[in-house]
Nucleic acid binder design. Structure first.
Lengths: 245, 245
DNA sequence: TGGGCCCTTTGACTTGCGTCAATGTCAGGA
DNA sequence: TCCTGACATTGACGCAAGTCAAAGGGCCCA
């Protein structure tokens, strides 16, 4: 596995600024700075494989990565979509549970496991933040269970687009208006593996949603949402579910 | 909502003995003892409803509870199965994310949220334990995503039975042999809602697994597994996945 | 002993999504 | 400019699981 060192402006690192350390004291930030390092993976590259020992934890700085579980015969289910500020790895466990893949070019802010765990002992609020993140991921996973177990193909597609709209929105509160254009960060195959569908079904449902005026397709990856409310109505969710910023 | 007080022997409380406090000092145990209290719910009773404010966290002492998400039209997906020693609620959040229902008669060991959170600040290892539990639940949820997204009905049924066998096994290492009989703690409807299927499909696949000699049915709830390896081969999982005790 | 209720099983039929296969689109390289 | 390969769309067809409906059990209680 090829792993190149990659120099990145520290101010972009979410470990420091968002994911872990929004409550850090200056001297704690200095300590985080000392032990962190960056890694870069080109699009398509495998970051980690299930069962492999893992000696680092990391936070996504830029790009998109996926967590997947696969069966021997090739059936694949995406179990997590990692966008900037998301965390990879779990303190206290050495083996990796999922395959991690870079979908786009990917920059990670890494910490070796041992020094990071030492740091958790001294900075309890970092562990508190990790607990919050784990519980948020758990909620997200459970919402996805409803999608995979009970939603129709059309509802799944609408839910995914709504999710990406939501995650594309700045957390500063600037809500997307109408006529928004978003860029799908993933291929049809990745979408299918996330939604528990085939690429053909994904394609057909996107075509149908376009025919029904719910979305407009703009090239292979671009989607324009003329009416966000119309899209949300197609997800099958309660109106307010998760759309509160 | 009827909630009766219920007296229980403290030694059965997993908060004290397993879920949270295996590392507690004696004086910490005393403090936990002081603030805990028990609640009892008869089978079928609603414990909590999504959106409702939640002022307690709890640990399952006896019985089975479920976490579910539902859509307006009635489609329901079970997102968690709570067996003794499992934890309900999340510190730092006041609203409930899921519907919680007692499937069998259920005994909970409860803590009011505020004193429990105060306790977390003073006993950091309790928060460490909560993080471990959250990450374990996250792994379980993601395994279930693979099941819901990609497995056939037959594989889902086999996986559920295997899961219940696994969870019925003592953690002291006594592995179930062949010819084991287990008691399904849930109805066909609950199974269907857990597996993303209909009750008819669940029933048909159970019948087929019996016809193929993978399982034997013993009354409505009992299942005899003549050959555990044969059952595991039907789950679609890697041989060793999760079956290490 | 029988009736009512709930859960489960079974059968006949339907359908949404998967499978297989062909065609379309676009970007990069010779 | 054409070739090539990767990704996406579309169509025809099949099947696994859903839907609708009826017929068992098993348990409680009159």
């Amino acid at each position: 596995m090829k792993r190149e060192e990659f120099s990145v402006d520290c101010s972009a690192c979410p470990i420091r600024h968002k994911a872990v350390c929004s409550r850090c004291e200056p001297d704690e930030l200095d300590e985080l700075e000392r032990i962190k390092f960056y890694k870069f993976y080109p699009a398509g590259q495998t970051v980690a494989i299930r069962g492999e020992p893992l000696e680092t934890v990391a936070s996504v700085v830029g790009g998109v990565a996926t967590l997947t579980r696969s069966m021997e015969d090739g059936r694949t289910q995406l179990v997590g979509l990692l966008l900037p500020s998301d965390f990879i790895g779990r303190p206290g466990r050495t083996a990796i549970e999922y395959d991690v893949t870079a979908v786009t070019d990917l920059t990670l802010c890494c910490f070796n496991r041992k020094p990071f765990e030492d740091l958790l002992v001294r900075f309890p609020h970092v562990r508190e933040r990790l607990l919050e993140m784990a519980l948020d991921e758990l909620d997200a996973a459970r919402d996805w269970m409803l999608l995979l177990g009970r939603k129709t193909a059309r509802e799944r597609i609408a839910s995914l687009i709504a999710l990406i709209v939501k995650r594309s929105t700045r957390p500063d509160g600037s809500v997307m208006g109408t006529g928004t254009r978003i860029e799908l960060p993933i291929t049809r195959e990745t979408m299918a593996n996330y939604l528990g569908l085939t690429i053909e079904t994904v394609s057909r449902q996107l075509t149908k949603l376009r025919a029904d005026g719910i979305i407009e397709l703009d090239g292979k990856r671009g989607i324009i949402i003329p009416d966000l409310g119309g899209l949300l109505a197609e997800t099958g969710d309660d109106d307010d579910g998760g759309m509160i910023f």
